[in-house]
Each structure stands twice: as structure tokens, then as C-alpha cells.
């Protein structure tokens, strides 16, 4: 079974973002970029499926600018066999990404597609579900366990209140939650080998997909700054403040 895994280049999760002075967007100039953490978990799961003999091939795919090839090389250093880069400098939103990935599914015919549940830049949590709908496939979102059994996959999902397990017919779409696995680090020899693995470059036009969106960004603002308060010296003082000053007890 072929496994397709989608990755996104985003701001490194340790970086504190700044809003541009003209409020047009956040400022990403000279900011450290990395693979979205949920996508790292997706790559790890795909590679583990290959190591277990469930997957025969792992194909990584991304949509984004030329620089996003770094993240594809990372995916291949972690164990993906080859990569597809749908290259565009446009700002591509979830729906257009889902349409492009649908095009990749049509060409590649994977048995399983794994994506991160959300990207930590736009925090949308949409692409996997949209892809499932467009491809007419079942979905197991927010997965904390993935168990492929023959023509089916059992996915344990992190839901409000606990865990839910669903069984999906294959092919299926899975999106990863934090506790699905602990991603490995790429080793230097693997990073070197990844440079020689095949990477196909495509364009949105190859899939007949327009990247535009009817949602426009009006402005971006920093949230209301929360000011630190006071340090109290004792539990008594804390209880007194909560009762008499904050009046929340």
C-alpha cells in the first residue's frame, strides 16, 4: 500500500510572531521556518507503517514556495521515499490545498493519506477534512492511534470528553493529533541520502486548480496585551485578594 503524507512549511513553533506595523499581516521576514509539528507526526506515522511492512512506499507532498522543498527533503530524510512539490508563491488556503491534494491522490492512488490536523500558522484545522470530502473518502481526524487491518483502518480519535474509535474503509484520510507518536530526528547520513531522492516539481495548473480564495484578509492586529499583575507573599494574601480585590471567590 502506498501512503501519501502532506507537509507544510510554517514558522518554527518556538518563534514569537510580530504583527506588521501597517497591520497588513504578520511579519515573516527573516523568521526561522520549519515543518509544521503535526506534519512531523504524520511523516513519522507513515514511516512507521513502512517499517512495519504495512506501507510499501511513502510519498511526501507539499504546496508552497520553492523554499518548501527544504521540508520535503526533511520528510525524505525521515524516511519518505520520494516527494512531490506543487510549487506556487501564491497564498494558498485550505480549500485550494485540498483541491491540489485531490489531484495528487487521483494520480498516485494511495491507500492511505496522512496529514497534520492543523497548521500552527493559520490554525485552520480544515485541509484533511476538505480533502476527504472532495475525494469522496472517509476520514479519521485527530488520530492518537492508527491500526491498518487489511482493507480497513481503525482510527482512535481525540474528541471532547475522551477518545472515539472508528473503522474506515481504505483508501482513507487520517489527520494526526499530538499523541499519535514521538517523531524521530533525522540522522546526518539520512539527510545526505535524502538529497538524492526523487523530487517532482508541479504547478497548480498541472492539476487545473486556481489558487485564489473569496476570503480576503482585512487586517491583522496583536491581541489585547495582558499585563502581569502582582506577586503575593502567602496563601492568605492570595485568598484575600481573590475575595476582596478580584471578587472571584
Amino acid at each position: 500500500m502506498k501512503v501519501l503524507v502532506a507537509v507544510k512549511r510554517v514558522i518554527d513553533y518556538n518563534v514569537k510572531i510580530r504583527v506588521k506595523p501597517d497591520h497588513s499581516d504578520v511579519d515573516l521576514t527573516n523568521v526561522k521556518m520549519a515543518m509544521n509539528p503535526f506534519c512531523e507526526i504524520a511523516v513519522e506515522e507513515a514511516v512507521r507503517l513502512k517499517e512495519k511492512g504495512v506501507a510499501s512506499e511513502v510519498v511526501a507532498v507539499t504546496v508552497g514556495p520553492k523554499a518548501a522543498q527544504e521540508q520535503l527533503r526533511t520528510a525524505m530524510a525521515l524516511g519518505a521515499d520520494r516527494a512531490i512539490h506543487v510549487q506556487t508563491d501564491d497564498k494558498v488556503e485550505s480549500l485550494a490545498v485540498a483541491k491540489l491534494l485531490k489531484g495528487v491522490i487521483d494520480e498516485e492512488q494511495p491507500g492511505l493519506v496522512i496529514l497534520g490536523k492543523q497548521a500552527i500558522d493559520t490554525d485552520n484545522n480544515q485541509t484533511g477534512q476538505m480533502l476527504a470530502a472532495l475525494a469522496g473518502l472517509p476520514q479519521g481526524t485527530f488520530a492518537s492511534e492508527v491500526d491498518v487491518q487489511g482493507e480497513k483502518v481503525a482510527v482512535t480519535r481525540e474528541i471532547d470528553g475522551g477518545l472515539q474509535t472508528v473503522e474506515l474503509s481504505l483508501p482513507a484520510i487520517v489527520t494526526t493529533d499530538l499523541r499519535l507518536n514521538d517523531p524521530r530526528y533525522a540522522k546526518l547520513p539520512d539527510i545526505m541520502k535524502a538529497k538524492k531522492k526523487p523530487l517532482d516539481v508541479k504547478t497548480p495548473e498541472d492539476y487545473g486548480v486556481a489558487t485564489g480564495s473569496k476570503v480576503s484578509l482585512i487586517k491583522v492586529e496583536a491581541p489585547a496585551e495582558r499585563k502581569g499583575g502582582v506577586k503575593v507573599g502567602s496563601v492568605d494574601e492570595l485568598v484575600d485578594k481573590l475575595k476582596n480585590e478580584a471578587k472571584v471567590l
Partner: peptide, 11 residues
């Protein structure tokens, strides 16, 4: 967006 470190107004 960005873990609540920015608020986007969208139309």
C-alpha cells in the same frame, strides 16, 4: 491565528 498571537479580520 498563530496560537492567538495575532487576530485576523477576514471578509
Amino acid at each position: 491565528i498563530y496560537a492567538g498571537n495575532a487576530i485576523a479580520t477576514v471578509k
